[in-house]
Amino acid sequence: MSSKHHKIRVGISIGDFNGIGPEIILKSLKDKSITEFFTPVIFGSGKLFTYQKNVFKLQTNFNYINTATEAQSGKINMVNLTKENSNIEFGIPTEESTKMAIASLDAATEALLKNEIDVLVTAPINKDEMMKYGFSHPGHTGYFEEKAQKKAVMFMVTDDLKVAVSTHHIPVAEIAANISKEKIKKQVKQLVTTLKEDFCIEKPKIAILGLNPHAGDGGAIGREEIEIIEPAIRELFDQDIMAFGPYPADSFFQPEKYRAFDAVLAMYHDQGLAPFKTIAYQEGVNYTAGLPFIRTSPDHGVAYDIAGKNLADETSFSEAIFTAIKIYNNRTEYRELMENRLRPKASHLKNGVDEDLPAAAE
């Protein structure tokens, strides 16, 4: 079905319910007209969300279902993972809230892989607590890579700024050893594909940051730029990929600099995410790029310090929902265009005569 005639089914995992996950979900869906744009499918608990909507004085109504296949257009659907009461302790990660976060993520991902939902938006999780109960990844990215059996790129996006990171959640002491020329080339190529297919940018320009202060200062403060990053950029450019750099990270994130590029590849987590979260503030979205399915999340964490106080701002979560929808539509349109472009032209031959040609003069 063309995306133009398909109301997108947005799956939502609830994160740690003792954090701000349910609050920002409820606030993002509080407008009664929201279901005119997409079909929400929350993987959680009816009793849990009923309790929380009363805490935040919201009038949200749910359509309770057993599986995502039962989701109804025009309603906020709740896949009821448990009918038991939840022991809510705002601001404190508990075994119950952590296990529910894992169960919600697993159920939502299974539905995504089965095409029972079209995109997935994940509320914030407590990674450390989840790893205590069998979750084997230090974040969502590794989890989705395992599910897809494909490497992904952590891509933080707004309309004006898009930042990817070459290394994800690893100790700072291990960053240099986890950077290589081939890895950078592969990530940049993936970013180019993502920008074309998912963001409709025809000829993307990618800025690549250096690893060391002042991008190594010509080798005086490290040689990774000379030995790894610069050769990668040269080889990419020789392949007609618009890759530039390496740029010193301390001075790159000025509006007149970063806006000259369609995306930025930072070498490590904080190098890219610290300026991104400062610039994007509440509008940033975390997109797991390079996978066969679409997953987004807000660019913030569980925020235990404000949980239950009705202070959480839902802007980033709402942006994550609508970014996922835009990407789905863009990707669908791109694939339809490519299909049509590659499809052989139908023959107009009839009795050996091409009817599109003018008739020969008699």
Score class of each variant (00 low, 15 high):
K4N: 14
H5A: 14
I8T: 12
R9E: 00
V10R: 02
I12K: 03
S13V: 04
G19F: 03
G19V: 05
I20Y: 05
G21A: 08
L26E: 11
L26M: 03
K30I: 13
D31M: 10
K32W: 11
K32N: 15
K32C: 11
S33E: 15
T39I: 15
P40G: 00
T50K: 14
F62Y: 14
N63T: 08
M78F: 13
N85D: 14
I92G: 00
P93D: 01
S97A: 12
S97P: 01
M100F: 15
I102Q: 04
I102A: 04
E110G: 14
A111R: 01
L112E: 00
L112A: 00
E116G: 05
I117W: 07
L120Y: 04
D128Y: 12
D128G: 03
M130I: 11
M131I: 13
H137E: 12
H140G: 05
H140C: 02
Y143N: 04
F144C: 11
F144H: 09
T158C: 07
D160T: 12
K162S: 09
V163W: 02
A164Q: 04
I170Y: 07
A173R: 15
A173M: 13
A177K: 15
S180A: 06
I184L: 14
K185H: 07
K189M: 12
Q190Y: 01
T193P: 05
D198S: 13
A207P: 06
L209C: 04
P213L: 10
H214Y: 11
A220C: 10
G222F: 07
E224Q: 10
E224K: 09
I226Q: 10
R234M: 11
R234F: 11
M242Q: 15
F253L: 01
F253G: 04
P255F: 08
P255M: 07
R259W: 01
A260G: 12
A263Q: 06
V264T: 14
V264M: 08
L265H: 03
L265Q: 05
A266C: 09
D270L: 01
F276T: 07
G284Q: 02
V285I: 11
Y287H: 07
T288M: 11
L291E: 06
L291T: 08
I294A: 00
D299E: 04
V302S: 15
I306C: 10
L311W: 10
A312L: 02
A312S: 10
E314G: 08
S316V: 04
F317W: 09
K326C: 05
N329M: 13
N329R: 15
T332P: 01
E333G: 03
E336S: 08
R341F: 14
R341Q: 14
K345H: 08
K345D: 10
S347N: 11
A360W: 09
